[in-house]
Amino acid sequence: MNRRLILKLVVAAFASLPLALPAAAAEKVTVFAAASLKNALDAANAAWSKDSGNEATVSYAASSALAKQIEAAAPADLFISADLAWMDYVAEKKLIKDGTRVNLLGNRIVLVAPKDKASTVEIKEGFDLSGLVGDGKLAMGAVDSVPAGKYGKAALEKLGVWSSVEGKVAGAESVRAALALVSRGEAPYGIVYQTDAAADPGVAVVGTFPEDSHPPIIYPVAILSESKSAAAAAYLDFLKSDKAAPFFTEQGFTILK
């Protein structure tokens, strides 16, 4: 066999091999989200990553802390707040992209107790919360900054019992931190979102606050103005989709979008 024929055979053999195309690099989305979203959002993100091949990384904390980090130029692509006020805060500073903000979820606040010491409490005007708490502490998110704490204080004021328990409040850095105080038995009662209570087997809901006792609990989401992620818009579309909805409703959120 001459050398020219050998060369032709080698070229033909290589030409028949499938071309190995480089895999597309996964896009990453960094999300700043209210601590109360953790269980639902972790599950939603796992589904999104599986379907899209992209990755969502979430930093969970109180909405107040996250808004301040965004103001300080912390790198993030989306912000999901547990109330309208902190989303308004970043919007007023021109830190979200126009046309991307949407009210995504709703929630309720409840009174919880350690599961092994739980008895039903009728939450109504003038109920004796101070007597229930006794010498212990009422665990809440910090009432001047953490959304769950602000909602809780508003409800207690409307029901006429805030002044009797104000001195017994243990203000936590986030609603999950307040939940942990009750779950560990360090506080006999706490005010948290119903979704947080559902996520912790160590507590039981002993009462639900009337919806008209506090402002509506709304979770807005928006893409941040400094986002460079090509997948941010697709991720937001996923959060608003029917496919994502069950991850939130299973944890007790209501869908608003």
Rank of each mutant, 00 (worst) to 15 (best):
R4S: 14
T208F: 08
I123G: 00
V175F: 08
A198F: 00
A139N: 00
A204W: 04
G99N: 05
V203W: 00
A25E: 02
T120V: 05
V90T: 05
V90Y: 03
I6Y: 12
A67G: 12
M87L: 13
L138Y: 03
A25M: 11
L84V: 12
R184I: 09
I6W: 12
L181G: 03
P147L: 02
R176F: 09
K97M: 14
A20H: 04
L236E: 14
A24D: 03
D212T: 05
D237S: 15
K158W: 06
D128K: 02
G106S: 13
S213Q: 06
S227F: 11
A178L: 02
A245G: 10
A24Y: 08
A46C: 07
Y189W: 00
S241H: 14
G160N: 00
K93Q: 04
A76K: 11
E173Q: 13
F32D: 09
K68F: 02
A82D: 15
R184D: 15
L7V: 14
P210Q: 03
A44P: 08
I223D: 04
L224Y: 11
K150P: 05
A187L: 05
F248Y: 15
A15V: 05
R3K: 14
Y151H: 13
K158R: 10
P114N: 06
E92P: 02
P216W: 00
L138S: 03
L179R: 01
K117D: 04
A35C: 13
N45Y: 13
E250Y: 05
A74W: 06
A73L: 09
A67M: 08
A85V: 12
R101Y: 09
R101M: 11
V221G: 13
D128W: 10
Y235Q: 13
W48F: 15
A12Y: 05
P75Q: 13
E186K: 06
A33T: 08
N107G: 02
A65N: 05
A197E: 01
A76P: 11
P246Q: 09
L9S: 14
A230P: 07
S163L: 01
S16N: 00
V10I: 15
A178M: 06
A72T: 02
K168M: 01
K228M: 09
S145Y: 08
V165H: 07
S64F: 10
D135C: 04
S64A: 14
L239S: 12
G106W: 10
V29T: 14
P75K: 15
A61M: 01
A199M: 06
D77M: 08
A65E: 09
S63L: 02
G207V: 07
A12P: 06
D83A: 02
D77W: 11
K115N: 13
D83P: 09
P75W: 09
D212G: 07
S229P: 12
G167C: 03
S241C: 12
T120E: 13
E71T: 10
H214F: 09
K115E: 05
Y235T: 14
V146N: 12
S130L: 05
